[in-house]
């Protein structure tokens, strides 16, 4: 697999458009998933994941094979996500009054969720809850946790992606999951 990826990369470097399509196909799910877990919004995740591939394409000559290609891609993706999170203005609150609406809040505008089979609701809620808790984590813990458990990468790889020594990565993963555990417990107990 690695040799196949390498050959695709060198073809892209020679200006082969189609070879890049192959690389996108291979990594799109991983990159999209990481972006989604990082920003918690599908639309934004798609935009960020696409931007990741566009950047990779324009900077392909800077990729020197020092890391695995996937590591390099994850690096671009995490940096883009973190940049986006830092620039992002805080979301507007549903509690805020709508101007000129005589004290009505945005709650009145929220559609009720369609009824679903109860089990599905529970499953969905659990996932959404977890996603919401992931989003609340400070981004340094969030990145480490996602790369470790969702993307299943080794500590060494995460170190390369985040530009950190392995022991620091480990600390961040432990602290991140500790923080997640606290809220996750509350979520499961409240059910």
């Amino acid at each position: 697999m690695e040799t196949f990826i390498k050959s695709l990369v060198s073809r892209v470097k020679e200006g082969d458009h189609e070879a890049f399509e192959g690389l996108v196909e291979l990594f799109k799910d991983k990159i999209y998933r990481l972006c989604y877990r990082m920003v918690g919004n599908r639309h934004e995740a798609e935009d960020l994941a696409q931007e990741t591939f566009v950047r990779a394409y324009t900077k392909i000559n800077q990729y020197n094979g020092e890391y695995k290609f996937s590591t390099w891609l994850y690096r671009i993706a995490t940096n883009l996500c973190i940049d986006r999170l830092r620039k992002k203005k805080p979301d507007f609150s549903l509690d805020a009054e709508v101007p000129g609406a005589d004290g009505a809040t945005l709650y009145s505008q929220v559609a009720t969720a369609e009824p679903l089979p109860e089990e599905a609701v529970v499953e969905k809620e659990k996932h959404d809850q977890l996603q919401q808790e992931i989003i609340k984590l400070p981004e340094k813990y969030r990145t480490a946790i996602l790369l470790k458990y969702v993307e299943d990468l080794s500590l060494e790889e995460i170190g390369k992606i985040m530009d950190l020594p392995v022991p620091t990565v480990k600390t961040r993963i432990h602290r991140g999951r500790e923080a997640l555990k606290k809220v996750f417990r509350m979520v499961t107990k409240s059910r």
């Binding site: 470097k13 399509e21 196909e25 799910d29 998933r33 798609e46 994941a49 566009v54 000559n61 992931i134």
Partner: peptide, 29 residues
């Protein structure tokens, strides 16, 4: 918690993702 996190793997890129990326590419380097 960790099992739950691993469950989060079941997310795939939306349809037409590759096509969108390819259409966004600038001229080759």
């Amino acid at each position: 918690l960790l099992d739950e996190l691993r469950e989060a793997r079941h997310v795939t890129a939306p349809e037409g993702f590759t096509e969108s990326v390819m259409s966004r590419l600038p001229l080759s380097a």
